[in-house]
Every structure is written in C-alpha cells, then in structure tokens.
Design a protein around this nucleic acid. Sequence first.
DNA 1: TCCACTAGGGTAAACGATAACTCAAATAGG
DNA 2: CCTATTTGAGTTATCGTTTACCCTAGTGGA
Lengths: 340, 340
Amino acid sequence: MVEIARRAGVSTTTVSKVLNQRPGVGEKTRARIQRLIEQSDYVQNHAARHLRKGRSGLIDLVLMRLEGGYDLGIMQGVQEVLEQSGYRLVVFATNEDETTERLWLRRILDQSSDGVLLLLPYERVGIADTLLEQGIPFVAIGDRNEPTTAFPTIGSTIWLGGYTATEYLLSLGHRRIGIITGPLHLTTSRARLAGYREALEQAGIAVDPALICEGSYLLGDGIRQTEALLDLPDPPTAIFAGNDAQAAGVYQALYRRHIRIPEEMSVIGFDDVTYSAHMAPPLTTIRQPLEEMGRMAAEMLLRLIAGQTLETHHVELATSLVIRESCGPPRQGPLGRGNS
Amino acid sequence: MVEIARRAGVSTTTVSKVLNQRPGVGEKTRARIQRLIEQSDYVQNHAARHLRKGRSGLIDLVLMRLEGGYDLGIMQGVQEVLEQSGYRLVVFATNEDETTERLWLRRILDQSSDGVLLLLPYERVGIADTLLEQGIPFVAIGDRNEPTTAFPTIGSTIWLGGYTATEYLLSLGHRRIGIITGPLHLTTSRARLAGYREALEQAGIAVDPALICEGSYLLGDGIRQTEALLDLPDPPTAIFAGNDAQAAGVYQALYRRHIRIPEEMSVIGFDDVTYSAHMAPPLTTIRQPLEEMGRMAAEMLLRLIAGQTLETHHVELATSLVIRESCGPPRQGPLGRGNS
DNA sequence: TCCACTAGGGTAAACGATAACTCAAATAGG
DNA sequence: CCTATTTGAGTTATCGTTTACCCTAGTGGA
C-alpha cells in the first residue's frame, strides 16, 4: 500500500480512502490511484484490517461430527450464502468431546470469529451462555433442545413431519407401524414420536409400546431396531425410521432377511438427505429443507452481525412428504422369510 | 493484556513472555502472572498476533462442491489433524465457477491463509501457479491431472485399483464386464480404465469398446450408462462403476429393471465412501483411504508451513479391495427382465 | 478586496501483540 | 571489596490499515 501511495505521489490515507470508497478524494486522483491498484497485484492485508476494524470476515460452523447427512445439507446452504457475502466459513467438529469443545470455545473468544452457527445440542458446556455473555452473534440450527427465546434458532416443523409420515402410512392401509426414534432426551426426537402418536390416535389405533424403539440416529441403530421389530410375534408392516441414516439401516436389515421393500415392508425416513434419493428403492421420506435452513441461518447471522435486529427469533420451516418408492400397501399375511 | 500487566505490576512485554512461554521471566513473577491470566477471562487477540507474527492459523480447503462422498472422507481426515494442531479449517466450494474461483484466490492472497489444500483439478485458472508464485504453501489431493513435481501431491494407486477390481470380477468368472469411467480428460479416470484394460488383456479377453461408457462421476451417469449397457444385445454380467456415486446410480437403474444384485448383476464401485457400506446390498468397492489421504495432506502441509522440506513430493497410498455383497458369480443365460 | 467556507489531501495516533534492544540489579569470581 | 557476568524486566519500534483531526488552497459571497 505504501508502494502504491509512493507511486501515485499521495499518502496512504488517500489510497485507503480510494480502497474503501470513502469521500474526500478528488475525481482524477481517485481514478489514478484506482488504476495503479488494478495494475499492481496488491491485496489488502487481512490481519491489519481485522485488527483495525474489529471484523475478521470469518464465521464458524460448529457441529459434532462431519457425517454427510443432515450436517452436509445445512453446510451447503450456509456455504451458498456466505460465498456471496464475502465471509469465509470455518468448520469445526467437536466430536462430542468436552475438551475439544472448550478448546474451540477459547478460540472463538479471541475475536477471530464474527459469528457462530451452532449445529449442536446447545446444552453442551454452556456454549450458548458463553457466547451470549461475550456478545458474539450466533444462531442455533435444528432445535435439539428446548425452545428458547434467549437467542435465534432455526428449526422445522418436526411434529408435523412425524404426524404426516404416520398419516401417510395409515392412508396406505398400514395398521401396525413401527417407529425407530432418536435419543428421547432430544426435543426433536420426542416431537416425531408425538406426531406419530397423534396420527395413530386420530385413526383410532392404540399405540403399541412394543413398536416404539429408541435409536441414536445412527445407521447401526436402524439395523438393530429393525431386527428387534422383525422378531416381534406380530411384526409391523411399515417402519418409520426417525431419520434417513436409520432408514438406511432398516434397508440393510431387511435386505439381510430377504424382505422386499415396499412389497413386504414399507419404510419411511426423515430429513431427506442427499443420498436418500440414491437408495434402492429410492426412499420415501419427510423432507426437512436443510439447505434452506442453512441459508436462513446464515442470513439471520449476517443480519445479526450487521447489528440489525431480527423480526423473529425463531424460524420454523415446513417439512414435507417426499413420496418415492419405499412405501406401499401392507403385505397380506406373515412375513415370508428367506424367499430370496 | 494491558489490564493484566497493570494488575501484576509488570509491563505487557513480560505478560507476553509468559503467554508465549519464552525465557526472561523470574519464577515467581511468572507464576503470579500465570495465575492472574487464568483467573481473568483474557484471550489473546487473534488479529494482533496474526498481524505481528504473520500467521493466521487458518488453512483453506478448496473443493468444487460439497458432495458428501469423496470430499467428505478427505475433510474428515484433514479435520482430525488440524484440530490437534491448533489450525482452523476454512472450507470453500468453487462450484466450478471461474468468477468464484478468482474471488477465492484474491482472498487467499491477502495473507489470511497459512496454507491451502487443493481438492481441485488444478488446471483451473492457474491456481497452482499463482500459489506457487506467491509462495503460499499448498498440497494437492487426488491427482486429477497430470503428475507434477512442481508441488506436493497426494494420490492413491488408482491404476492398481482399476486392475484389482477387474481382476476380482474375472476371478468370479465374469467375462463381459462393463465399465463406467469418469471424465476421460482426468488422469485418474484414464488410470482406472487402463487398469481395467490390462486385467482383461492378461486374462486373454478382448476389450469390447461397447462395454466402456464415459460418465462424470455423478449418480445420474450411473443410471444412464447402466441403461445403455443393459440395452446392449449382449449385456455384461458385471459393472465396474468408476466411483461409488455412479455405483449408486447403477443400483438404481438395476432396481428399476428388477435386476437383482449380485445374483443377476455384479457391481463394484471405487472410493469406498461412507455410504457405500450402507447400500443394500453393501457395495463391494475399491477403497481409497480417503481419511488417511486427508490426514497425510494436512500433515504435509503443516510441515511445509513450518518451513521443513518434504522427503517426498508425491505420496501414493494403496488402494484395496473391500469385498462386501454386491458381487457374485455371473448369471447363466439372459437377463430375466421383470421377474419381480 | 476580504473573509468564511469547503473540498482535497496529509499527519499521526490508534488497533493489540511481539521482539529487538536496553538497562538495572543481583550474583559470582578474583 | 570490586568488577564481570548473568538474569529479570522495561522501552520502544513495528506489523499494515484505518480514522479522527488538521491544514491548505481555492471558491463564492458580501
């Protein structure tokens, strides 16, 4: 910059003014400097600006683990918005490890982050509280915990999703519907289950506790719990998998037992992650608009950073039923095991 | 920091020395300051350190698109290493858009990045050249282009992978093996094909050009090209899918036509991304050690940043055959279409 | 013609931390 | 007991930009 100022025969102040498009520079001087800047391969030093202006141009996305499902959809949405805004996206995985979380938190507090997107159950190590205290703008995505008004959150109509999924299966004629939930200490898991219950009740069907299995949103749970369901004396004719990862597990367990989808067993997922359309048969699922959620979250955060106030603190996007090919009418009679 | 210095009755210099664990401070003074630091909630200002020390603590990972397959595996490996090293990972997707790429490049050059991991065909907009020119350390992952000695690269034994995949199918008894390659302008795509050719030749089988289809590593290509292969007068008994995403496409096309895997058609993938074990049936594939590659790349980059020289400029990790359940002996006779 | 005002542009002080250098006191050796 | 050496700690310049403030020359009005 000094170099440019020298060549233009002006002070760095003037060059700075030109760079930041502020008034106080004559038309021809401005043009001259502008040209010089373009000719040279000068780039503003990030650190110096950061130091002086107090903005790092960085936004942190914290998540527990890079999994390629739910998280990826969100990331894509976030990426999209940030890319245009000039902010850069820092990704951090905590691995659910407290030490790592605290480490990250310390690093956030050094003012190297202009804002944070939380993709965590925010009970963890008081992250939310700390951020709040320190006045660092943040938005929590996917209400993994109790609703709150203390900070902005983005979610989707989970309860409705659970209801819709169950209702759809009912409409196909199913009466015994298994459900594999997520960890029941999470609000979102309970919301799905509540939707499921409500739909059954409205159809006048008693809820059979044996058909309710708890998983932890991992593929392995899908496998295990499906086996449990199949081993029931009166197994279900359809399984609501809680999320798409577990649905993949369901697929696998069914494949092992040579049970065809959807002829012998209907499967419905939740999330609509990228790969759910890739499964064979393509998975019918409840779509959470993940990218849209990521976009919204990023936009809200940017507004927060800009010092604007948000109209709404909690945004809830609509889930929707995506019908593909994993659901059909219930089978008649018992499961034909081993009819490969 | 000034505050701490004041409270300890020393100068900021001394505090700085304590913080950075440098000599020149008395034992008791050091202890006193240390305690004060711990009591206060002081965190070093990132920008100032960055400005003074010339290191931002940031590493950029550039890729074309967040897809959740190949890229994700690499990211996980990178994450793992960086987490421990104290560097933060910035993720940037170019979307294959030149403007976006240039934008990113400009931002890199402002010295806000200590190093770059390139997950791109590096022909693009002379990224490699620019980085080289500017003296920014970087490592290219996954040799999408010609080998080079100009900068460090990490790859895997692709040719061998192609060879092994084909050989495995041959060993099962297959004689007509379809292959869906990636874009043939990429070295890695050609390497797979070359391995395939070599294996066939060694088995004394003539290469049938009709069995070679070009895709672009996307799921859709898998579907399309599988259909093309199935519509051949003499369709193959096995398909080598080029990568796992295309394999998912193959699965889907076969599902549509009610062709069972592996009874009627064997399918083998390439990459061994996270979801390939989740497919039904679990996909037999050639494993690229993606996480390992990510880790290696990150480690090499860190060494480069630390100013150390690398022993080897090009690292090639071993691919391996992962046998799951999508391959079997060839079917006898023609494809039984529609035997649901 | 003189004064007040404005626009263009410069000066210098931050921003927060680090590091080269300096200085004073304490220690050890003769 | 005095000097040489070590050790602990402070001074000050610096990293590259921005910005509050100041100055000067030109303009317009009275």
